[in-house]
C-alpha cells in the first residue's frame, strides 16, 4: 500500500487536480486550455529537462536561466544588429549554449570547482555579459545603438514563426511550435537516459563515479557532456523565448532558473524514482502548469503563484526523501 502510494501518488494527485479544475471551472477541460498549459511550461520544461541531465551525473547547473536569456539576447543581436537570417541566429544561440556547457564542465571537472559554485559564477558572468554589447539596453527593431546610429535589422519572419506558428492537430491552428519542441526534446532525453547505454552510464557516474570509472567509463567526459546537454537545452529555451517576445528583453526570464529546477526536483517524486529522471521532470513541469492555470481560472491572484510553486516543491521533496527510504542526491 505504502509502495503504491509512493509510486503513483504524484500521478494520482495530478489526475485529481485535472478532474477538480475541470469540474470547478468552466473552460478548463478544453483543448485550448490544455495547449495553453503546455505552452506556459514549454520553456521552463525544456530548461528542466536539460538540468536533469546534470542532476543524473550528480551535478547541478544553476546557469541555465542566464544561458537562456543570453541566447535570447544573442538571437536578437544577431538579427537586429548584425542583420543575419533566422538560421544563423539559431545556430549562434545553440553554439553559445554548447560553449557555456563545455566551459562549465571543464571548470567543474578539471578545475575541481564544486558544481553549484561554478555554475553560480557562470550565471553571474552571463547575466552581465548579455548586457555589454548594447550597453544595457533591450534589443528591438529600430533601436538606437550606443554609437547613435539606428539598428537596421529586423526579426526575420522565419524566426518569428517559431514563436507564432501553430500546427493543426484535430483543430486548426492548435499546437504552437514551442509545445512541439518541448514534446520532442522530452521524448529524446527520456529515451536517451532510459534506454541507451550512454544514459545508463550517466546514471552510474552519478551514483558511484569510482565504480563507473573502474567499469571503463570515461567519467570526466560524461560529466562534461551532461553540462553541454544542459547548455544546449537552455539555449533552445532562449530561442523560443526570443521568438515569443519578438525582441531581446533584458528584463525577461527572471523566473526561468527557479521554475526549471523546481520541475526537475519535483520529478524525483514521480513514480517513486527518488532520482532525477526525464519523465518525472516533464510531469513536474506539467504539474506546476496545471496547478497555476487552474488556480488562475478560479481567480486566485497572480501574486500567490510563487508561493504555490514553492509549496509543491517542498511537499515533493519531503515525499522523495523521507517517504521512499532510499536517499538520492
Amino acid at each position: 500500500m505504502a509502495n503504491i502510494l509512493i509510486r503513483y501518488g504524484f500521478l494520482a494527485l495530478l489526475v485529481a487536480l485535472v478532474v477538480f479544475f475541470s469540474v470547478a471551472t468552466s473552460g478548463f477541460a478544453s483543448p485550448q486550455a490544455a495547449v495553453f498549459i503546455f505552452q506556459s511550461v514549454a520553456i521552463t520544461g525544456i530548461l528542466a529537462l536539460g538540468v536533469t541531465a546534470t542532476l543524473v551525473v550528480g551535478g547541478f547547473d544553476l546557469s541555465i536561466g542566464s544561458v537562456a536569456t543570453s541566447a535570447m539576447m544573442a538571437a536578437a543581436y544577431a538579427m537586429i544588429v548584425l542583420q543575419q537570417n533566422a538560421f544563423v541566429a539559431v545556430i549562434f544561440c545553440l553554439a553559445i549554449g554548447a560553449l557555456v556547457g563545455l566551459v562549465n564542465g571543464l571548470i567543474i571537472v578539471y578545475m575541481r570547482v564544486p558544481d553549484l559554485l561554478a555554475t553560480l559564477g557562470m550565471m553571474f558572468l552571463l547575466l552581465g555579459l548579455q548586457r555589454i554589447p548594447t550597453e544595457g539596453r533591450s534589443i528591438a527593431a529600430g533601436m538606437t545603438m550606443p554609437d547613435g546610429s539606428t539598428a537596421q535589422g529586423t526579426f526575420s519572419p522565419a524566426f518569428m514563426a517559431i514563436g507564432r506558428h501553430r500546427f493543426d492537430f484535430f483543430l486548426p491552428d492548435l499546437v504552437p511550435v514551442s509545445v512541439v519542441v518541448l514534446l520532442i526534446l522530452a521524448v529524446l532525453i527520456w529515451f536517451f537516459l532510459e534506454y541507451t547505454r550512454f544514459g545508463r552510464m550517466m546514471y552510474a557516474v552519478g551514483s558511484n563515479p569510482r565504480a563507473a570509472e573502474l567499469a571503463g567509463a570515461p567519467v570526466k567526459a560524461y560529466k562534461i557532456w551532461a553540462y553541454i546537454i544542459s547548455g544546449v537545452f537552455a539555449s533552445i529555451g532562449g530561442i523560443l523565448l526570443a521568438a515569443r517576445l519578438g525582441r531581446g528583453d533584458i528584463a525577461s526570464g527572471n523566473n526561468l532558473l527557479l521554475d526549471a529546477v523546481a520541475a526537475a526536483l519535483i520529478g524525483y517524486a514521480v513514480l517513486g524514482a527518488s532520482k532525477p529522471n526525464a519523465f518525472g521532470t516533464a510531469i513536474g513541469a506539467l504539474f506546476v502548469g496545471v496547478l497555476l492555470q487552474g488556480l488562475t481560472m478560479m481567480n486566485v491572484p497572480y501574486y500567490t503563484q510563487d508561493f504555490v510553486k514553492g509549496a509543491v516543491l517542498v511537499i515533493a521533496l519531503i515525499f522523495t526523501f523521507s517517504l521512499s527510504g532510499r536517499t538520492a542526491r
Partner: peptide
Amino acid sequence: AKDRAESGIVADF
C-alpha cells in the same frame, strides 16, 4: 576491485 561498496557497486542499480 577492492572494497566493493566504494569502487564496485552502483547502489542505484
